[in-house]
Design a protein around this nucleic acid. Structure first.
Lengths: 146, 146
DNA sequence: TCCTTAGTAATAATCATTCTCGTTTAGATC
DNA sequence: GATCTAAACGAGAATGATTATTACTAAGGA
């Protein structure tokens, strides 16, 4: 469900928010760029079109997009937060060296069920499976042993 | 495999590290406290015994303990890093409101397998399943709807 | 067009973490 | 026990990501 600029405009209006050039620009960058960018990466890209734009504005726009469930934060460790545009439910494979995140689409992972002990104490609303390892690039550049 | 002060002393010496009162104190706090404390929580606790101790020292000691595989960092979102003392392999249930982390021991979760597409591109070394939801306390205090 | 209010930009503040560096100390050696 | 040296410590500064403050601007309804 790829959102268009038209749709995003309606979503902004529908949630009582204003449509501004900055918001549209951030959204376009997210669509064109894809992946799991950090706030700063989005900022650098948007800045090419709006050189006067503030980093703070990007933070605020991302916050609005999260509230509207158009993007989701994906953060690991103390690295800078990353965002992904919401699409089909999926999981992640993360390279422990370069922090690259690859989306994993596999219906089987969606069928993972919390054990009874968790259901007794938690009202579970979702789960996430993360695979850790070395991506192809980092395998190649890594020392054979140490 | 609960570690004793004696064992930790040997582990420090065995890895070419010195045994200092600060290190023993941090380790004792970790054992007594359990759970998934932040660096600052550990610091506040240790400070009761060593009022002159520096926060920086706690960071350094945690780094050493991670290298020695005695504790593991458990970080979620842009929250402060948390540490858990290593025990049996397990997963987590995380309250999205209060950030409380509950350990989940369930052999079934260890049997989750990466799909072939991941194995083709990643050298997978592990995985983690995280359940998200509301803990009992936060369910009680939460608005019924909004 | 006017008006209200949300959005923006600039800047300061905050928070977790890391770095720098001078001082102290564990533990090996004598 | 005295001496020595690398490791560890403490204090505070520096960094980097994020959040808060505030005055100005502009979106969009009346």
């Amino acid at each position: 469900m790829k959102l268009s600029v038209k749709t995003i405009t309606e979503r902004f209006r529908g949630s009582g928010r204003k449509v501004t050039p900055q918001r549209v620009a951030v959204f376009e960058v997210l669509c064109e760029r894809g992946g799991h960018p950090t706030v700063d990466q989005i900022y650098q890209e948007v800045r090419k079109r709006f050189p006067m734009m503030s980093l703070n504005t990007v933070y605020q726009i991302m916050e609005a997009l999260v509230e509207m469930k158009i993007v989701s934060p994906v953060s690991h460790g103390q690295e800078a937060a990353r965002y992904e545009t919401d699409s089909a439910p999926h999981h992640h494979a993360i390279c422990v060296l370069c922090k690259r995140i690859v989306d994993v689409f596999d219906p089987a992972l969606g069928r993972v069920r919390p054990p009874q002990a968790v259901k007794d104490r938690f009202q579970v609303v979702g789960h996430r499976v993360e695979f850790f390892g070395y991506c192809a690039d980092c395998q190649a550049s890594r020392q054979p042993a140490h």
